[in-house]
Computed example of a mutant assay.
Amino acid sequence: MVNEKKLSDIVQNGTLEDIEKKLRELQLETVELHNFIIQNNSGDEVDVVLVNLLIAQSEFIEICGTNIHKNISVIALGTRSLYELLVRIKTIISNSEQVKKWSSEAITDNIQILEGILTLGHSDSNEHNTKALNDRIEHLKITRDKYELPEVKQPMPTGNLVDNVGLRAEHDGMYKLYSKLVHPSSFLVNFKESADTKNVRDILLIHAQLYSIAAINSIGNYVGFKKS
C-alpha cells in the first residue's frame, strides 16, 4: 500500500503495549515538527496549513493510542483520519494551489454546519438566534471574497485526490475496511466478534503508524526538518 519504505522497516509489531509506546513516540515527533515550523515561520500560507494538519495528526495519533485496548470503531476512526490527513498533506505539498481550495473548504464546512443548526433548531421562539446565524453565514461569504478564495460548494472527497498522490490502491483497499468499522454496518453490528479480531486491530494500528510516519517524512522533507 503506502510504499515509501518497506513496511517492516518503519513500523513496529509486537504487543499492544509496544505499539502504544511507538504511537506516543510518533506523537512527540509530530509535535516536534510542528514546533519547528512555528519557530522557522516564513509566513508561507502552506506552512500555516501544515501546522494545522500536524495538530490534527497529533490528536488522531492520541485517539489511536489511548483507545488501543478499546472499541475497534474508535481505532478505525483514528486510523482513517490519519490516512485522510496524509492524502491532504501530500496534495498540498505537491500543489500549493490546493491551499486556497482547502482553506475555502473550511468556510464551506462552517456555512453548512450553521445551515444545519438553522434547520434543526428553527422555531419562532429563537428569531434572534436565527438572525445571528444568518449574519454569521453572510460574514463567512464576505471573508471568502475578501481573501479571494474560490467558492467550494462541496468539500472534495478524499477519493478524488488519491490518484494525484499515488494512493489509489491504498484507498481502494483500506477504505473498504474503514467503512465497515467506522459506520454501524451490518457486519459490525451483527458480526462484532469477526470485526474486532487481533488481525483487524493489528492492521489498523500498523497503518496508523505508517500514515503518521509518511506524513512526518513528507512535511519534514518539504520544510527541511531533520530529526534531533
Rank of each mutant, 00 (worst) to 15 (best):
D196Y: 04
L77W: 01
S103N: 06
K70T: 06
V162I: 11
A132W: 11
T66L: 09
D124W: 10
I219N: 00
K101Y: 13
E4S: 03
H69S: 02
P184T: 04
T66D: 09
I142W: 03
R136F: 12
N35D: 15
L114S: 13
E59S: 06
Q98I: 02
S186I: 12
D202S: 14
T158H: 05
L82T: 14
G159C: 04
T119G: 05
F60K: 00
L120C: 06
A56R: 15
L204F: 06
Y211T: 04
N160A: 12
Q112A: 12
L16Y: 15
L23N: 05
D202N: 15
L77D: 03
G166L: 08
I10V: 14
Q98K: 14
N40M: 13
Q154D: 13
N95A: 08
Y178Q: 04
S125I: 10
L26S: 00
V11Y: 07
N160W: 10
D47P: 05
D18Y: 05
N71D: 12
E84L: 10
S96C: 07
V152Q: 05
A195R: 03
D202P: 09
L118H: 08
L23H: 06
V87D: 04
L120E: 12
E17F: 13
G78Q: 02
V200P: 00
Q57T: 13
V152I: 15
D202V: 11
H69M: 07
N217G: 10
I213K: 10
I206Y: 05
T15K: 06
S186C: 04
L28K: 10
W102E: 07
D163K: 15
H183E: 02
P150H: 13
T108K: 00
I213A: 00
K100R: 15
F36R: 11
V31W: 01
L204S: 02
S8D: 08
V200I: 13
K227T: 14
V99F: 09
M1W: 08
F36D: 05
E151D: 07
E84K: 13
C64Q: 03
K146V: 11
I55D: 10
I142M: 07
L133S: 08
K101Q: 10
R88F: 08
L7P: 03
H183V: 11
K176C: 04
L205N: 01
E59F: 12
Y147R: 07
N199Q: 12
K22N: 06
I111C: 01
W102P: 00
V87C: 05
L7E: 07
L120D: 12
E105H: 08
L167K: 07
H139A: 09
G121R: 13
